[in-house]
Design a protein around this nucleic acid. Structure first.
Lengths: 184, 184
DNA sequence: AAATAAAAGACAATGTATTGACATAAAATT
DNA sequence: AATTTTATGTCAATACATTGTCTTTTATTT
């Protein structure tokens, strides 16, 4: 019931699959390819988490937070809210991560000068030095993770991921419309 | 010190970047592209988590577990250990996830007939029915997430992710060799 | 056969991620 | 100006993920 083998698609697509090295037994239809793609992203993310901890010594969130704060132009901090949007993590999640980074004296939160509700997050001197000290490990990690990628292939993968992310992000927008009408 | 602008690379690579729609200001060197790729994977994974919960009503792990158990040929179960390897999650993590799925009566663990240490994991009838009932939502989710992808583009992204995962997985192998010599 | 080592998986502690709830401050409405 | 609504960040409860530890069983070595 759930496996439709033949869907009357032209052979060119099959040929493309075979060109890419996909085992012919695995080829069924669009749904199968989509399922494989989503599952592969799930697996790849799991490996990325494990290897980042193993090779760099940070969780992926911490790596992302420190990387975001160390960017040029953010020496005076970035607002908590902007940071959640940049990293695509919930406020509540970021709060916990920052708590632990503050405990280790790697980041600090200060009141926002223009908005008494808001906070600015920035690296401490210790945090900046720590981040700098990790750079060799991190670049070595990048290099190993892309060992068999040409420059052009890396750019292509990045391009597709950008595109995929945009599509994924757009989904939830559709069910917002009914948030407007409560009563007449 | 951390930003090397010119690296003497031929123009063809720059052209390739511009072809892909990468803003020219962002182009620096291989390290920058690698950093962007890893960060994009981090972001994409975060979005995938959120959207899976929102659209399907399951966490990504639960989606992956139920999907794995519902595969044809696994009606009689899969060993706990095989399942951790397939999903690329730790034994300890899977244990907790299975506990909650057992609590909801979606999966069960039974003793392995050939190995008294091991367990077989399988769907309950309720779990299988539940999974089947989710299929429309899931396929709709796949379709929306790949709304702007042609079939060939989807296959290309899948191909690159496969390749990237393989590179990432290979990293830790290098530091294993010293596990053999304790004493003479 | 006895001792040792290794594999399987369960438990505990901590970090990461989600939702729900709350207090405060800013913006919008009246 | 006073009220209502919205935005920002924090706290609490639960789920997910990692490392370390332990018990039981199997495999290996002697």
């Amino acid at each position: 019931m759930t496996s439709l083998i033949a869907t009357g698609r032209p052979d060119s697509r099959l040929a493309a699959l075979l060109d890419k090295g996909v085992p012919s037994m695995a080829i069924q239809d669009d749904k199968s390819v989509a399922n494989r793609l989503f599952f592969r992203l799930f697996q790849a993310s799991n490996i990325l988490q494990k290897q980042t901890v193993g090779q760099v010594g940070l969780s992926t969130v911490q790596w992302a937070v420190l990387g975001a704060l160390s960017r040029k132009g953010y020496e005076d901090g970035i607002s908590f809210n902007q940071l959640t949007e940049y990293l695509i993590v919930s406020r509540q999640n970021l709060d916990g991560v920052l708590k632990r980074l503050e405990r280790d004296d790697h980041v600090k939160r200060i009141p926002h000068p223009d908005d008494k509700r808001a906070r600015l997050i920035l690296l401490t001197d210790k945090g900046r030095a720590f981040w700098e000290s990790l750079q060799p490990k991190i670049h070595e990690f990048y290099a190993q993770g892309l060992a068999n990628f040409t420059f052009d292939e890396t750019v292509s993968l990045l391009h597709y991921l950008n595109k995929f992310q945009k599509d994924l992000e757009a989904i939830a927008m559709q069910e917002a419309p009914n948030a407007e009408r409560e009563e007449s």
